[in-house]
Design a protein around this nucleic acid. Sequence first.
DNA 1: TGCACGATAATCT
DNA 2: GATTATCGTGCAA
Length: 195
Amino acid sequence: MRLPALAPLPRRALPVDAAALARWLIGTTLVRRLPEGRRVGRIVETEAYVVGDAASHAYRGETPRNRAMFLAHGHAYVYLIYGMWTCLNVSAEPRGVGAGVLIRALEPLAGFDDEVAPARVASGPGRLALALRVGRDLDGIDLCRRGPLWLAPPVRPVGAIGTSVRIGLSREAERPLRFFERGSPALSGPRRLNA
DNA sequence: TGCACGATAATCT
DNA sequence: GATTATCGTGCAA
């Protein structure tokens, strides 16, 4: 596939609000630089972890782990979950305020292994991080600059955006803070949430 | 198609 | 010592 320049999005283009950013990120592009070349995907599923949200890692204040959630919007927050999976987030508020957007699924555009079906290779936060080789070493990096990982403008218009509750939570489980592109084959989660 | 279950380790109480 | 923003497998229907 022929791709446009993939220049980083300027920070001023990102909404400064976790829920607004989560919705806005649907359809934008994620670029990962690797030794063998670039892996490029379209963000099709996100979740917001907003200010005052008991399900957010930032809820009880800043700690060594969640430090990156308190950076200015547009920085990466990367953490390990269940002892074996990595999750990628984008910080979402001004410096000093803890909030983030979990990137849950990508539609692969270029550079991915052909061994895994495109609909599955980056469907779900754990598989996404695995496919892009995102680890804790990327925690705190600026996603609005060219580097190992950055955000770029959409390569084509986004479709209709759906909303649902977030996946896998026990607290604040009823809040409609998950966003996705309707009809994308790369979505994670139970089918009933993807309508 | 949809569950229950276990793997596995950092983080926080 | 409890909890966890996940995933693959296995088994039932």
